[in-house]
């Protein structure tokens, strides 16, 4: 207990935990829409595609300030998204192939640029690669402020466009007939997901960012059939695992923060899938057992051939 109190009064821990919690909250909210629209892996694609933008921003600006790099990441993430959407729209290539292709090519471009930067003499490029794997312990207070500002804007947008997003997510054709441009909504939502992913990159890195987007939403989906409850729960799960993962990595030596956040949130999914009332695996098994019992009590034969 004392260690916990000590931990929570530690300044570095406060910063990192706050950052991770913010990230979990934001990606939890936006992840719900990605998961419900069956575009869960979009996050994976965007986060890989952000790399060339980060390096390009570094080459052009010559500095390593967070805002500049994030801007680069957002531009290349958006570019990748638009490319994916147009490949699917204009050819017979399916979304998953377009996604895999665009993200790996963008990542390749990022790597090529990265090796190019490393050969420029005297360039202070160290730390760029933290965008690949993320390093939550390097979060600074101004990073947190950037995250908080982006978070507030994103959440405000979700609240503002709540009904549009809801209709669009569940029935985009219906949204179109109501006069909401599904093309514009798609772009807006994709843009918001891009921003959410980009601000998470330096905490958990390119590869694990997709988990932050999908996993809380999948867990929340098991507990409810209402979008509002799902979004709230998902935000809560995301924030909770952000703090828990940070705490675990501070208490156990040599435990990297990003991966331990992902393990925490995966644990929540496992629990949800097993125990959620109504949908969970255990609940369904129990209901089947009860039905069988009831059927036998009503006089049914135990081996009725099933059709």
């Amino acid at each position: 207990m004392d260690t916990l109190i000590f931990l929570f009064s530690d300044y570095t821990f406060q910063t990192v935990a706050l950052g991770s919690a913010l990230l979990g909250l934001i990606s939890g909210v936006l992840g719900c829409f990605a998961v419900l629209r069956k575009q869960s892996l979009l996050g994976d694609g965007i986060s890989h595609s952000a790399l060339p933008g980060v390096v390009m921003a570094f080459i052009l600006l010559g500095v390593k300030n967070t805002e500049g790099l994030l801007l680069g990441a957002i531009v290349s993430g958006l570019l990748a998204t638009i490319l994916m959407i147009s490949i699917v729209r204009y050819t017979r290539i399916k979304f998953d192939s377009a996604l895999a292709l665009v993200m790996s090519v963008f990542f390749g471009l990022g790597l090529a640029l990265l090796t190019y930067v490393q050969k420029i003499p005297n360039s202070n490029q160290a730390g760029l690669s933290r965008f690949i794997f993320g390093q939550a312990s390097t979060l600074l207070q101004r990073d947190i402020i950037v995250m908080a500002v982006c978070g507030v804007v994103l959440l405000a947008l979700v609240v503002l466009f709540w009904k549009e997003f809801m209709v669009f997510t569940f029935d985009s054709d219906f949204a179109q007939t109501l006069g909401f441009s599904s093309q514009k909504l798609n772009l807006l939502l994709s843009f918001m997901i891009v921003v959410a992913i980009i601000i998470g990159l330096q905490t958990v890195g390119v590869i694990l960012m997709s988990a932050m987007l999908i996993t809380p939403a999948v867990a929340a989906r098991q507990w409810t059939n209402r979008l509002g409850v799902m979004v709230t729960l998902s935000a809560f799960f995301g924030a909770l695992s952000g703090v828990a993962g940070t705490a675990a990595s501070s208490l156990v030596p040599k435990l990297p923060t990003g991966p331990s956040i992902v393990v925490c949130v995966s644990g929540i999914v496992l629990i949800s899938i097993l125990f959620a009332p109504g949908r969970g695996i255990l609940y369904r098994a129990n209901r089947r057992r009860k039905n069988r019992l009831l059927f036998r009590m009503e006089g049914g034969s135990p081996d009725v051939p099933t059709i």
Binding site: K38, D96, A211, L213, R221
Partner: peptide, 15 residues
């Protein structure tokens, strides 16, 4: 059937 196939991919490999 508790989650879509792509979401399943997205849960398993990061873990």
């Amino acid at each position: 059937k508790l989650l879509a196939e792509d979401a399943a991919i997205g849960v398993v490999f990061p873990l």
